[in-house]
Amino acid sequence: MRITCPLCGPRDRREFYYYGSEDYLTQPEVGDLDAVDAQLHLRDNVAGRVRDVWYHEAGCASWLVVTRDTVSHAVEKVELVANVKGILAKTKLKGGAA
């Protein structure tokens, strides 16, 4: 698997640290336990197209949002978190229970 860093170009997967799902980019209200639980623990855990957060640890140290497929490992798009944060902040977190 290779990831194309927007700053460094295509790089080996080993340069990147996987942080977790895009849920980490949301900002729960202080004291809202359900939202904190949703951000830290609960996951859609999709088999297919996902967006998750990576860190270019052995490269330019950028935080990245990678759009990729969890079944084929194909990487579709890589963006700097700084460029997508505004969009993601509006993402509403879903609670855990039905």
Partner: peptide, 12 residues
């Protein structure tokens, strides 16, 4: 779990 409308604290 998603079929029952639930999100689990699980990542595969």
């Amino acid at each position: 779990a998603a079929m029952a409308g639930m999100r689990l604290p699980i990542e595969s």
